[in-house]
Computed example of a mutant assay.
Amino acid sequence: GEVDKEKQYIRTLIDRMIDGIVLVSSLLEDDDVQDIKRQGTPLVLVGENRGNSSGPIVRIDCKDASFKAVVHLIESGHREIAMIFGSMPAIENQRKIEGYMEALRNAKIPVKPEYVLEAENNIEGGYVATRRLIALDPGPQAIFCSSDILAFGALDAIRDSDRSVPEDVAVMGFDNVRMSSLMVPKLSTVSKPLHRMGLSGARLLLDVIESRDSGEAVMEELVLQSKLKIRKSCGHKERINEIF
């Protein structure tokens, strides 16, 4: 599988005596990451892996990003807000769920267990979960998805149910992948600072390598903030006619 491939690539790199590794959105478990560190190869994670790894790591504040996304839906007039989350990466999605729930609690909106669904992180997963949500009575006024891929499935499911986005159900994604601005309607989403994450990961790895000689302490965790990218799908009246 994909995990075995990743392990093989890492073994090949270590055999070639590379100076260090930056693992981006790794599929490895925490024990696997610790094994690499014990072999003496400098390592930095960018994005959170499956286990709750110790640093050095560069990640985004998923809880805060989700909180802001759901607050925006609330401020746009929605009260019945559902969430669809993917099974992986587990840590990031757990933080997104925490942000979603905190936003609802702060607005004195009850968290409905039937409104929080786990799905395979693909278009079909988002589609199936959304069909389940809109079959509820009452169904949600808005759906927050833990990835844009899930949101694409949500858009399809709402259309196939003879409903409109955002008039009947608003949709908010997460990631701001390129396709999100090409959807109809254009998808509101959370934009991650990918360039800065990569740059910070490389700089942090250089610090780790240099610290082996200098003995200086290295930052264990760098948490970056995301931004909302508001487009038509969330129904915000000020952006309803947005072109870009």
Rank of each mutant, 00 (worst) to 15 (best):
E6T: 02
T12K: 07
I14Y: 02
D15H: 03
S26M: 09
E29P: 00
D31T: 08
Q34S: 10
R38N: 08
G40E: 03
L43Q: 04
V44H: 02
V44L: 09
G47E: 08
E48S: 15
G51L: 07
N52C: 14
P56K: 10
I57P: 12
V58M: 10
V58Q: 07
I60R: 05
D64W: 07
A65I: 02
S66T: 05
K68N: 15
K68H: 12
K68V: 14
V70H: 00
V71A: 00
L73Q: 11
S76A: 15
I81L: 04
I84D: 02
I84L: 07
N93E: 06
I97T: 05
E102Q: 14
V111I: 14
E114C: 12
Y115M: 09
L117H: 05
N121P: 10
I123K: 06
A129E: 05
R132D: 00
G139M: 11
P140V: 09
S146T: 13
A151E: 02
S164I: 13
A170V: 04
M172I: 01
R178Y: 08
M179Q: 00
L182V: 01
M183P: 02
V190S: 08
K192H: 07
K192A: 08
G201V: 11
L204Q: 04
L206N: 08
D207F: 09
E220H: 13
E221C: 08
L224W: 09
C234W: 04
K237D: 03
I240C: 07
